[in-house]
């Protein structure tokens, strides 16, 4: 049930954001795990292939989308429906875009902690907790202004 992790990396496979909501399998190394996802996604044909990887592991499906040079990936439970998570990703990117104003990879690099702040205002326990862009932006600019 729910999102197991959120990942964001660029075309070269450099990680920009990583958030785990569930423990990886025993002995699974985070770095090896991430790079296997990168390898898989970067080899895909974005015109002719879907945004879903059905059985990445026994318990995980991937839903991803590429925006300019950045991949946004969510690992979800194999029983979950893929489509809504694609909307989750898109909403996240839209909020980032509105928050930073024309967000680009550099914004996420230099302000990674603000990107995390955005993520945490949206996703808790692997579930989306707020969907109104207006509410989110108001909250984010308030938090950002706190000392």
């Amino acid at each position: 049930m729910g999102i197991q992790f959120i990942l964001c990396f660029n075309k070269q496979g450099v990680v920009r954001l990583v958030r785990w909501y569930e423990q990886l399998e025993k002995n699974e190394d985070t770095q090896a795990y991430i790079s296997s996802i990168y390898k898989l996604l970067s080899s895909r044909d974005h015109k002719n292939q879907s945004n879903f990887i059905e059985s990445f592991t026994e318990k995980t499906k991937l839903v991803y989308k590429r925006y300019a040079g950045l991949y946004f990936v969510m690992g979800i439970d194999t029983k979950d429906e893929e489509a809504i998570h694609l909307s989750n990703i898109h909403l996240f990117v839209e909020v980032l875009d509105a928050f930073f104003g024309n967000v680009c990879e550099l914004d996420i690099v230099f302000n990674f902690y603000k990107a995390y702040m955005t993520m945490d205002e949206m996703f808790i326990g692997g579930e989306l907790q707020e969907i109104s862009k207006e509410v989110l932006l108001e909250r984010l600019s308030y938090l950002d202004g706190l000392e």
Binding site: K11, Y67, V93, E94, D97, F99, V103, F110, L140, G145
Partner: peptide
């Protein structure tokens, strides 16, 4: 370079540049 280009449409953000941490940016 692609990473300076916005992913989406034009927007002016609300992120506060005053809250930047200079040492970190450098």
């Amino acid at each position: 370079m692609e990473n300076t280009k916005s992913f989406l449409s034009n927007n002016s953000g609300v992120a506060n540049s005053a809250s930047l941490i200079k040492g970190l940016q450098l």
